[in-house]
Lab assay of single mutants.
Amino acid sequence: MGFKLLSKLLVYLTASIMAIASPLAFSVDSSGEYPTVSEIPVGEVRLYQIADGVWSHIATQSFDGAVYPSNGLIVRDGDELLLIDTAWGAKNTAALLAEIEKQIGLPVTRAVSTHFHDDRVGGVDVLRAAGVATYASPSTRRLAEVEGNEIPTHSLEGLSSSGDAVRFGPVELFYPGAAHSTDNLIVYVPSASVLYGGCAIYELSRTSAGNVADADLAEWPTSIERIQQHYPEAQFVIPGHGLPGGLDLLKHTTNVVKAHTNRSVVE
């Protein structure tokens, strides 16, 4: 069995187990497998329904001669939608809004960016022009300005110390501490036991640490421990890039980060 097929099978099995364990909360999309990078042309966006009122959005972007996937989250909030992270750029984010209108038909009224990198804030200006209120932590807003990236308009308070959590509509926002970046936030959907790890969490097929220019490698494993301790009931975990899975993604990420750190020390 090929690795790609095995990865998709694991996603399907995880979703099936969740649907059985929580039949009222989960209505997993039966329309197909989780979209992969090879299936999404740059400039297009796919939506994948995880649970009743919960979707991931998947886009792709060219970077350094390669094409990478990027995940975000959409959560229903009454007759409105909360968006977590842009679709990595203005063109993708405009396509995301169009796809949401086509498939869901509810307005996106608020959006949260989970850290300051372009795959999370690139497209904020498109959201703002569409009347979406954009939010991020003060740290993310400051770092985005320093980096020359787009800056969300509103500040999220109460997320300055490791372990801080605040309720934001249908989700809980959690600051686990520094990891992929010093400002990275985690998003949890309690009604569906869905954990969105953003770039602080890796997919299972990833074996290298990737972009760690703004990471705190020493603190990252401790931050992941905080996530595990705060959300032990999480059933569906979405990484910032690639295929979702279960809580095993947290341990896998820790292993990859520690291996990278150990290699760096040896070198």
Rank of each mutant, 00 (worst) to 15 (best):
L127P: 01
S193Y: 14
A133I: 14
V112G: 02
D29G: 06
H117Q: 00
P221W: 13
A213D: 14
R110N: 15
P170R: 06
V67M: 10
G65Y: 07
V42H: 13
A213R: 09
P232Y: 12
E39K: 13
E267Y: 07
A98G: 04
K251H: 03
Y48I: 10
V75S: 10
T207E: 12
L47A: 11
A165H: 04
R142S: 13
R263G: 09
V132L: 10
Y188G: 08
L47C: 12
P152T: 07
A133W: 11
L24A: 11
L96G: 11
V212N: 14
L106W: 11
S113T: 08
I58K: 04
L10D: 05
I40F: 02
E233C: 13
A178I: 04
K102W: 09
W55G: 01
P107Q: 04
V54W: 01
R141W: 12
P176M: 07
V112A: 13
V75I: 11
S181G: 03
S155N: 13
S223L: 03
S162F: 15
W88N: 13
A259D: 09
D125F: 08
S208T: 12
D52W: 07
N211D: 07
M18S: 07
L9I: 07
L83P: 00
S22M: 10
I104D: 00
H241E: 00
D214G: 07
S62G: 07
T207P: 05
A179Q: 00
A19R: 06
D77I: 08
F174N: 10
G158S: 13
S31V: 00
A94T: 05
N255D: 14
E203A: 03
V108K: 01
T109F: 07
E147G: 07
R128E: 06
L82K: 03
L47Y: 02
Y135I: 09
P138Q: 13
S27D: 09
D77G: 05
D79C: 12
R76E: 09
T182A: 05
L73Q: 06
L6F: 12
E233M: 05
L83G: 11
A259E: 04
G122E: 04
L83Q: 07
V237Y: 07
L127Q: 02
T222P: 07
V54H: 02
Q235A: 04
G89C: 07
A259C: 08
D85K: 01
Y202H: 08
E145Y: 12
